[in-house]
Design a protein around this nucleic acid. Structure first.
Lengths: 239, 239
DNA sequence: CCATCTCATATTGTATACAATATATAAAAA
DNA sequence: TTTTTATATATTGTATACAATATGAGATGG
C-alpha cells in the first residue's frame, strides 16, 4: 500500500468506529443541542466545528445539512447555521400536536394491550413514584420517556413516534432547563395513574381525553415555568 | 482579479440564481421524488447525479444529507442513498396521523373562523365540484390541497403543517400513481360539504369526527387502489 | 459443484485548494 | 457628524485529488 499520510493526527474519538465521520459529528452536534450545551440561536461556524472535532469542513457541512433537514438547526445560505430558535408559539404548538398524537396512540394501542405490557408500565410508574420526591428533573424526564414509550410501542405506529421524537427533543431541553412547577410532579403521578386505569379498563374515549389533558397541563406548566424564571428569549446572536 | 477558471462550463439552469448549488439540487431531487420521476427504492448514485446536474460531488452530497434529514431518502453509510421505500404500514400510519392532526386543527381552527374564510373555502369547494367529473387525479390533488390548506391556516399551527407536509408528499405521489376509486370522488365531495357545514355551525366535536373519518376512508380507498392495480412493491433495487 | 479467496473496479468518504459572498473596518465625501 | 465608498478579513460554497470501503468476477481449493 502506497498511502501518503500527509494529514496531522485525527481526533480518535471521532474517527474510531467504522461509521463515517459525518454521521458521528452529526450525532455529536445533535446531542450537544438536545442536552442544552448549544443553546437556541447559537451560531455554528464551520471552522470552529472543524477545530472542535479536528476534521475538515466537508463532514461538518454534511452533518449540518442533515440537522437542517431534521429541523434542529437553520442554515441561511451564504450566511451561516444557527441552532433553531424556539418561542412560546412553538412550545404551545408542539404540545397541541403531542396531545393529538398521544390520543391517537391510545386509540390504536388499547386493542393491543396485554397483561405483560400493563405490568411493565405499572412497574415503570412505581419507579416513577419512588423518585417523585427527588426533584431531579433529568431523572424524571428519563422515566417519563420510558413510561410513554411503552404506550407508543403498543400502537405500532413508528412514523408517529419518529415525527414526535424528531422535534420533541427541543421541548425536553427546555424542560430540563426550566424544570417543573412545585405541584406538577404530584399531578403527573396521578395523571399517569388515571391513564393507566383507563388502559386497564380498555376505555378508549377516556384514555384519549386523559392523554390530551395531560399534554395540556404540561404545556401550561412549562410556559409558566419559563415566564417565572425569565431569562427566556435573551442573548440573541441573530434573528 | 486573478481568477484561474479551470472548470468546464457549468449547467446554467443550476447555477443561475444567487442560491447555492446544493440548495437548488436539493429542491430538484425533492421534486423528482415527489413527482414520481424517482420511484421508491431508486438508487441515487452520486456520480450519476453529478452528470445529471453537471456539478461536482460536494453539493450533491450535501443535498442528499438534507433529504435524508427530511426522511425522503435513506443513506446507508458507505453503501449509498435510496429513495425511501413505502409499504402499506407506512400508508396506514400516515393516514392515522393525518386524521389526528386534522381533528386537532379543526378544534384549533373553528374558534378563529371568519365569514371571509368560510366564503373562501366554499369557493374552493365549488371549483372542486366543477372538476369532479374530469377524473384528472392531479387537478384533484391540487384543489384538495387548497381546500385543506384553508383549514390549516385557521388553526395557526405552522409546526403541524410542516410536520405533515414533510412526509405527506410521498402519499400524494402514490395517489397520483394509483388514482381514486370509482365512487371516491363523489364521496369526497359530500364529505367536504359535511365538514364545511360542521365548521359553519362551529360544531367542533362533529368536525373532529368528520375529519378523522375522511382520512380513514381515504386510507381504505388508497390501499384498495394499490391492491387492485398491483405492481406495488416490485422492481426492487435494494432492500 | 460449491465455497472461499484474490484482486480489479465501482462507489462512497475526507482533505485541501480556491472561488464567491458576506461582514467589518477605515478612509473619503457630504 | 453622518453617510458613503473602498478595502481587507472572515466565512461560506465548490471543485478536485485522493483514501477507504464495498462490490463483483474470476481463480483456487475442497
Amino acid at each position: 500500500m502506497t498511502s501518503t499520510v500527509k494529514n496531522a493526527e485525527i481526533n480518535p474519538e471521532i474517527l474510531s468506529f467504522g461509521e463515517p465521520v459525518y454521521a458521528r459529528v452529526c450525532e455529536h452536534i445533535r446531542q450537544d443541542i438536545l442536552s442544552g450545551k448549544l443553546e437556541a440561536g447559537f451560531r455554528l461556524k464551520i471552522h470552529g466545528l472543524c477545530q472542535r472535532y479536528n476534521v475538515s469542513q466537508m463532514p461538518i457541512r454534511e452533518a449540518l445539512q442533515q440537522l437542517q433537514g431534521e429541523g434542529l438547526i437553520v442554515i441561511e445560505p451564504n450566511r451561516g447555521a444557527y441552532v433553531r430558535r424556539v418561542d412560546e408559539h412553538f412550545i404551545k404548538n408542539m404540545y397541541d400536536i403531542r396531545g393529538a398524537i398521544d390520543a391517537l396512540l391510545a386509540r390504536l394501542g388499547i386493542p393491543n394491550l396485554t397483561d405483560e405490557s400493563l405490568e411493565k408500565i405499572l412497574e415503570i410508574q412505581e419507579r416513577y413514584e419512588e423518585f417523585a420526591h427527588a426533584k431531579d428533573t433529568n431523572v424524571f424526564l428519563t422515566i417519563n420517556k420510558q413510561f410513554h414509550h411503552e404506550f407508543y410501542m403498543l400502537a405500532d405506529n413508528p412514523e408517529a413516534l419518529q415525527i414526535m421524537e424528531r422535534q420533541w427533543g427541543l421541548i425536553d431541553t427546555l424542560r430540563a432547563k426550566y424544570g417543573f412547577g412545585p405541584t406538577r410532579l404530584i399531578e403527573i403521578m396521578s395523571e399517569h395513574r388515571e391513564l393507566l386505569e383507563a388502559y386497564e379498563h380498555r376505555n378508549i374515549a377516556l384514555a384519549e381525553r386523559i392523554a390530551r389533558d395531560h399534554c395540556e397541563k404540561a404545556k401550561i406548566d412549562l410556559l409558566q415555568q419559563i415566564r417565572d424564571k425569565k431569562g427566556f428569549d435573551k442573548k440573541e446572536d441573530r434573528p
